Simulated scan of single mutants.
Amino acid sequence: MTTQGSTVEEWTRALAESTGSPGGGAGTGLMLAVAASLTSMVAGYSDSEEDDGGEPARIRVRAQALRQEALRLADDDASASKAFGAAFRLEPGPERDEAIRQASLEAAASSAVLGERAIGAIDDLAWLAANGNRSLVADVVVAFGALRAAVAGARTNVSFDLGSLRSAGTSLGQVRRQHPALWAAVEKLNKAMDRIDALTADIDHRAAPTDAS
Rank of each mutant, 00 (worst) to 15 (best):
M41R: 06
M41Q: 04
V42C: 10
V42P: 09
A43Y: 10
G44Y: 06
Y45E: 12
S48H: 13
S48E: 15
E50V: 13
D51C: 12
D52K: 14
G53R: 09
G53N: 13
G53W: 01
G54E: 14
G54I: 10
G54R: 05
P56Q: 13
P56V: 03
P56H: 12
A57V: 00
R58T: 06
R58F: 09
I59A: 04
I59K: 07
I59C: 07
I59F: 14
V61S: 10
V61N: 01
V61F: 10
R62F: 03
R62S: 10
R62M: 06
R62P: 04
A63R: 00
A63K: 01
Q64F: 00
L66S: 09
L66Y: 01
R67L: 13
Q68G: 08
E69N: 13
E69K: 08
E69T: 13
A70H: 08
L71Q: 09
L71C: 07
L71P: 01
R72D: 15
R72A: 12
R72H: 13
L73I: 04
L73Y: 10
A74M: 04
A74I: 08
A74C: 11
A74K: 03
D75S: 12
D76C: 05
D76A: 08
D76N: 14
D76I: 04
A78H: 06
A78L: 05
S79A: 14
S79W: 01
S81E: 05
S81D: 03
S81R: 01
S81C: 07
K82L: 09
K82Y: 11
A83Q: 09
F84A: 02
G85T: 08
G85P: 02
A86E: 07
A87S: 14
R89I: 06
L90R: 15
E91H: 13
P92W: 13
P92S: 11
G93P: 09
P94R: 15
P94Q: 12
P94W: 15
E95V: 05
E95K: 15
R96V: 02
R96M: 08
D97M: 08
D97Q: 12
A99W: 04
A99K: 06
I100W: 00
I100K: 02
R101V: 02
R101T: 09
Q102F: 10
Q102I: 04
A103M: 01
S104G: 08
S104N: 00
S104H: 05
E106Q: 15
E106K: 11
E106D: 13
A107S: 11
A107C: 04
S111Y: 01
A112G: 08
A112S: 14
V113N: 06
V113F: 03
G115N: 06
G115L: 00
A118H: 05
A118E: 05
A118Y: 03
G120N: 12
G120A: 07
A121C: 07
I122V: 10
D123A: 11
D123S: 12
D124P: 02
L125S: 06
W127V: 03
W127I: 02
L128T: 06
L128N: 03
L128Y: 11
A129R: 02
A129F: 03
A130C: 07
G132N: 14
N133I: 06
N133F: 15
R134P: 15
